[in-house]
């Protein structure tokens, strides 16, 4: 799939067919982590792939934002101590989230390119997710990503006009 086509057509998918994901599909998806740009090359991000139905259900119980029954849940997490050690205070407080955001975008586009539906989820209880997945306190779950074969058509998305959000040379307050 062409990159710009992928960017244009990707939408959050919240309903999934029950089909499992093939191991090579998961492998392709998680390799994105190696190629995502990282501030200070901190490499503080971690990805936990959850595919066991019982564990997905346990995660889902503490993630109100997680809709449907995905074949996998990816937990994009960050080692906050590593982020501080390699990126300083800004690395831990700011760059970590930029890195996670960029990596999330890569993962969502990669999933779309593989014919998968995916949806980022921020509504979850971090300590509960840590407990379920045996994560140390220093590793913070930043975002969950539900993944599976789509069982619904992408919903229409309201987007602002380009005039409202893009400016050339100077910010123009009166355009909106």
């Amino acid at each position: 799939m062409d990159l710009f086509e992928a960017i244009k057509t990707r939408r959050s998918i919240r309903a999934y067919r029950p089909d499992p994901l093939a191991p090579h599909t998961i492998e392709q998806l998680v390799r994105v982590l190696q190629n995502s740009p990282m501030a200070s090359n901190a490499q503080e991000l971690r990805l936990i792939v959850v595919q066991q139905p019982a564990r997905i259900r346990a995660v889902r119980r503490f993630a109100p934002g997680l809709s449907g029954h995905p074949a996998a849940v990816l937990v994009l997490a960050a080692d906050t101590e590593l982020a501080k050690a390699r990126g300083g205070k800004d690395g831990r407080d700011v760059a970590l989230y930029l890195n996670a955001g960029v990596t999330l975008a890569y993962l969502l586009l990669a999933a779309h390119g593989l014919g998968l539906g995916a949806c980022p989820v921020r509504s979850f209880h971090a300590a509960a997710i840590r407990t379920i997945l045996d994560m140390p306190v220093s590793v913070e779950p930043v975002v969950l990503i539900s993944v599976g074969y789509p069982a619904e058509a992408p919903r229409a998305k309201a987007v602002p006009s380009m005039d409202e959000v893009v400016f050339y040379e100077r910010y123009a307050q009166s355009r909106a």
Partner: peptide, 17 residues
């Protein structure tokens, strides 16, 4: 039990959402 966990977790998360 799914529903119970959903409601309690949502109650905890909603004030920041």
């Amino acid at each position: 039990y799914d529903l119970f966990c959903f409601l309690v977790t949502a109650a905890r998360q909603l004030p920041r959402e």
